[in-house]
Amino acid sequence: MTKSQLIEALAKAEGITLKAAETAVNVTFQSMEQALIKSDRLEIRGFGSFKVKNYEGYKGRNPKTGELIEVESKKLPFFKVGKELKERVNGGTSQD
């Protein structure tokens, strides 16, 4: 499913215009982006939570050429799936 398919599905489910559904989808993901850009935590109950993790730089090798390269430190968002979604993708039961 792509963003435009999500917009169509939302418009249909809620009986709203495509334009209104597009606004809703954009507001949602822009809000989430803004939080992650500020390194704020983000939690959607039943869906999951995100937090930005810092990864230290390290010396690595280009796997193709074996050349030594410096991998710079970086920040990446880490997604932790929520309980409800975790159970639902597994057919409704938690496997833990």
Binding site: K3, L6, L10, R88
Partner: peptide, 19 residues
Amino acid sequence: TLFEIVKQTLETGEDVLIS
């Protein structure tokens, strides 16, 4: 509803790609 649609899609095993 928006998050419900995303969850339903993932439940069927389909990816959700938000450009």
